[in-house]
Nucleic acid binder design. Structure first.
Lengths: 347, 347
DNA sequence: TCCTCAATTGTAAGCGCTTACAATCAAAGT
DNA sequence: ACTTTGATTGTAAGCGCTTACAATTGAGGA
């Protein structure tokens, strides 16, 4: 005999009483409860999770599905760890376990998610790297399991998401550059199919429009998260009749290639070409002159996601707030020396 | 009625037959099996995980416990993600789910682990960031659940671990430097309590001894994973009667601070001070001259860990190989220009 | 003294799935 | 024609826990 039954026999009470004592049910004599808890402690007892889930119909755990993809932002340990830290803290405070579920890039992410969801392995789900069109969202909606996405998508109806405030960042960056006198502002966008690329590009267009600046498709450069892409970029920017004087980078690492090529051409970042990075990354912290970029609290992002999820979970949702929550987490500008007024005689 | 019972009724067979069909039990008529599979597919059925685990006494999932610590090695660029990639692939190929379990730094990691283990939430466990003395190992051993650690420890008896080949790296680095003519070789070691610090330091001593070089405690510098620590280091190295001419870095980022300070002193890396980094990190890839360092395949590390675990799991263990597996994953030298013969007139 | 009621505990029916064992049936053997 | 045998399916007993409901007990009230 094992598990709760063993405890029950040991103490001469029924399994029901043990269960109640262990679960904080008020209908247990105080003395009995203590006896049970003591014995549980002594025997190193912990309720079997499968049995518990089966009986309760609830797992007390939420999944965080991530995709293993070198190219993606969320796949850097730093980003991931930071976000998870925030999530974990909030969830743990509500008695929920966070299970990070890594999906291989080669694997179909829809099927992957479906498995966990339809098997009832989690009570809630957080999805990362949302695509512009993402079937996972409809899947989650039809499953009825609470979920939140880290990133917006065009799929599905109203659902909860947390995203970076790309619009705010872009507006701030463009405002700053325009204020410095720039008129030809280029931008890099991610070359993958994550939705943030589209959003970033759109925000760029909108910001230009707000200043009455013309949108030139040739100033939009799809780049990968590799520093090398910075080199050719510089040539593309400058070797044209109407060169750009500033650039906003989605991936900050691109700055490394840019700096290098600028140096080769005898040019100086911040003077001959103004550069603003999106999210400050560690690899770039050491560049001189320091890249002007935006910072954010990664744990806060995780916290926000976890909270949005909790708001939908029957167990924890405060009755009043259970609903769709959509929020853009702001980033704050950290001025460096990589931007400034455009050199008059460009080139 | 739901679950398997629903399917059974729908098809006019017993739940036992459905279960057998779904699980690939050979004692099912081929036609029946197809009928069942078709219906399952059509109705989007997937077995409830809790029920399955309870009945089988097995979860088909393994945990990978990590600790959330921004400061540590692991929180850099792409360590965990790479490792997880390898693990996930191997485990998935054996029908096992990988659950990454993040433990907050503030949380007691022993208790954290104990919860998952004693509740029977996983069939196997992989532990990261092993300490020199690590109670988790005894915990796992007494639990009887198969486990592997990423990193060695002095705790427990014989158990499976996978670790980096610190000894090999150190030997190669020292050999190389000595070959170039260096006699005063310094080293940085991590200032935290993870076991790899001790191992690295020991390997350093051993390698020196092999060359008959004296060990000087003053040439061992505990450093954090911050580039800043490189600066003071340079002064400590050079401003002494008997300056060091080379240094081996545990954290490669330290090179950034070193380069900076060397430049301030008008000195050149590779000429005035030879530098060899341990594991090549993204943040340092861009330094010029390029840092001589070691590279490894992160996924291979994960793969090795997963395999070592599988060898202990009754379901998957090939009868012959179920046992303790201890392996040091080698790294390969990637020569840069940060090392070379010591300048004759040092300083 | 008998009854009511609240506090506490026990009984037993599941939760959804697996699996040992029994049952059925048709093909094959004698 | 009758038994044997293998293939296939059904029956039912759990897996360890929760929980509705019934049972017990003692205190307080009529």
């Amino acid at each position: 005999m094992r598990g709760i039954a063993r405890l029950a026999r040991e103490l001469g009470v029924s399994t029901a009483t043990v269960s109640r004592a262990l679960n904080g049910n008020p209908n247990v004599n105080k003395a009995t409860r203590e006896k049970v808890l003591e014995a549980a402690q002594r025997l190193g007892y912990a309720a079997n999770q499968a049995a518990r889930s089966l009986a309760q119909g609830v797992t007390h755990s939420v999944g965080f599905m991530i995709e293993l993809d070198h190219e993606s932002t969320t796949s850097t340990d730093y980003f991931f760890m930071g976000v998870v830290e925030g999530m974990q803290a909030v969830l743990a405070a509500h008695g929920l376990d966070l299970l990070v579920l890594p999906c291989a890039k080669s694997q179909d992410n829809f099927t992957f998610l479906q498995r966990f969801v339809s098997r009832g392995a989690v009570d809630g789900m957080i999805l990362a790297e949302t695509r512009r069109i993402d079937r996972r969202i409809e899947l989650m909606q039809s499953s009825g399991i609470p979920f939140v996405t880290l990133g917006r998508s065009d799929s599905g109806g109203g659902y909860s998401w947390i995203d970076l405030d790309f619009e705010g960042v872009m507006a701030t960056a463009v405002d700053r550059l325009v204020g410095q006198g720039h008129r030809r502002i280029a931008v890099t966008v991610p070359s993958n199919d994550a939705n943030y690329g589209t959003i970033f590009a759109q925000a760029y267009q909108d910001s230009l429009a707000r200043h009455g600046l013309a949108f030139d498709e040739e100033l939009v450069f799809p780049t990968r998260r590799r520093e090398d892409d910075g080199g050719s970029l510089v040539d593309g920017l400058l070797d044209r009749p109407d060169p750009a004087t500033a650039i906003i980078l989605f991936y900050e690492v691109t700055a490394i290639g840019i700096y290098r090529r600028l140096a080769e051409r005898g040019l100086t970042p911040g003077r001959d070409l103004s550069i603003i990075g999106f999210r400050g990354e560690e690899s770039v912290r050491f560049l001189a002159p320091q890249v002007t970029c935006f910072h954010m609290s990664l744990p806060d992002l995780g916290t926000a996601a976890a909270r949005a999820l909790l708001a939908q979970m029957p167990l924890t949702a405060p009755a009043f707030s259970s609903g769709v929550l959509q929020r853009r987490v702001p980033l704050s500008l950290v001025p460096g020396e990589s931007d400034g007024p455009p050199a008059s005689g460009v080139r």
